[in-house]
Design a protein around this nucleic acid. Sequence first.
DNA 1: CTGAAAGCGCTAACAA
DNA 2: TTGTTAGCGCTTTCAG
Lengths: 328, 328
Amino acid sequence: MANIQQIAQKAGVSVATVSRVLNNATSVTPQTRHKVEIAIKELKYEPSMLGRNLRNSESRLLLVLLPSISNPFYNEIINGIQNTAIAKNYNILLCETDSKPERENIYFNMVKNKLADGVISMDPTVNMQKLNELAENHPVILCSEYEEGGSIPYITVDSELAAYQAVKHLIKLGNERIALINSDEKFLYARLRRAGYERALKEFNLPIRDEWIYHTKDLEFEHGVQAMRMLLQSEEKPTAVFAVSDTLAIGALKAINGGGDTPNPIAVVGFDNISFSSMTNPTLTTISQPMFKMGSLAADMLMNSIKGDRVESIVLDHELIIRESTMG
Amino acid sequence: MANIQQIAQKAGVSVATVSRVLNNATSVTPQTRHKVEIAIKELKYEPSMLGRNLRNSESRLLLVLLPSISNPFYNEIINGIQNTAIAKNYNILLCETDSKPERENIYFNMVKNKLADGVISMDPTVNMQKLNELAENHPVILCSEYEEGGSIPYITVDSELAAYQAVKHLIKLGNERIALINSDEKFLYARLRRAGYERALKEFNLPIRDEWIYHTKDLEFEHGVQAMRMLLQSEEKPTAVFAVSDTLAIGALKAINGGGDTPNPIAVVGFDNISFSSMTNPTLTTISQPMFKMGSLAADMLMNSIKGDRVESIVLDHELIIRESTMG
DNA sequence: CTGAAAGCGCTAACAA
DNA sequence: TTGTTAGCGCTTTCAG
């Protein structure tokens, strides 16, 4: 556990020179550099980031806020963030809020306390007011979920359009009674996806019935199961379902399969294209978001923001992936 | 972005006193404390962890190494770690190695560089030699995967026994041709689970045939699908399969279902009890590990180790969860 | 090209 | 109870 002083002494140079060697500054003769490197090897020296970070007043840590790691949707986004961050010598701190404000506070404090240089929030349950406050003095990027007309830069997909296309796909297949499994409409994405759902139905003069719209508490599989069970009990059963998340859609599929003798299989479309969605039986038709790219760009945006650059919001393209769950 | 000096000045006290207030030291009069608190509020002061960490030479960050976040098995463990860590004012840095040594190096350096106070490794692909080296000077705990006879404390379950019980369950059901979908046997858990599989078969005088043992590259679903496809092509088809991970088992289920008209359904047992395992069709019989508890205890072990305490390894209990995939 | 020295923001020993 | 002061380990002017 040697420090820079001891290296300097051992190498017979000043600490400044050691620092120069460490940071690959040009102005060091090969000989001096060599002496220093020898000393570093011999003493097994590892520079302390604590000192460096204080001096540079940066932590090179990025916070990534998400409600829960258990939704696989976040996996690929995180991969994207991580990849890009590491390439620029940043690291990421994954922060599960569990939708609890206390947790959120802890993490917000970390950036106020300089323990993190910026935040990427993917958490729809985040307290936007606090986040906006934080954003006044610290770099913040929204990923996936965002605030319409807000001042924080975001990266997302067009949820309304995607939902519209998903439902239109169901309509083209001949479905006229189409249900929606939505999450809480306090979330923007939920409102947008509902809007897309309604737009498609209206366009084809199909009924929008409250009975066919179910709101879940969160996105866990179980809630999809529960939602579908309710829908199957409605007087006029829907023939198709659009769920705003793959996890819910997979739960719905489960309820449909588990229902015993459903004469006409019910078509299901999900949203996200998580890896499980091709493992279900039937495999799931879904909207694919470019998750890796989204994460990667979000990281770029944040790092640029930390550098002091102005960053623009981005809307990425999505794609409808047609699989067995809408093939009769 | 005030600092402690400015607070001191504003409050008309010394920086030491401000520090005392910040750290709830007892020896401060209510009046002085009040003055300081006023100043903190007025200047919207947030203490910098950078300074504190340097001074205390700690980062209060724990590294959690795992091969990939995409295996849901790790989710609950991480929750357990996180919960326990946060309660003691630590935070965790999730590190996906993607089984790449370069990545691993980055993370090892973080602890050498004092950017993290210790490591919990859940990564079977970790370079044990390097990890042992690291453990000589830094707190390290192994979680789930461990090293037999090694010097690093670990927390795990009895993989051999669990596998034995899983296979015995299949035998009791009348299966005599039981296949094994294993991962690479360079991993200890893979060797142990195979040993348990063989012990059960031997005990009942059932054949152990190479043809029925398939090794996968990693634990992704797709490899389970592929493994099962191969097994289904063997001359004498197995009537049951034990897969060493739920992800592989789910892939196997997929291959069985997708195989069209398999007259006798094939019984499948997995390992881990990930949340998705009750969403498949049929639902999956599996070995449940106490994941949350495992994570929680691992965090405790690590924090104790950081404090300088000696920590003992732990073997936790598991449980066989019987579901539809072994119910004909 | 190299060294001396200041200072990043904080804590803790020692004095008063 | 409070203040003074010396660092924690590093980077970076400024001189030489």
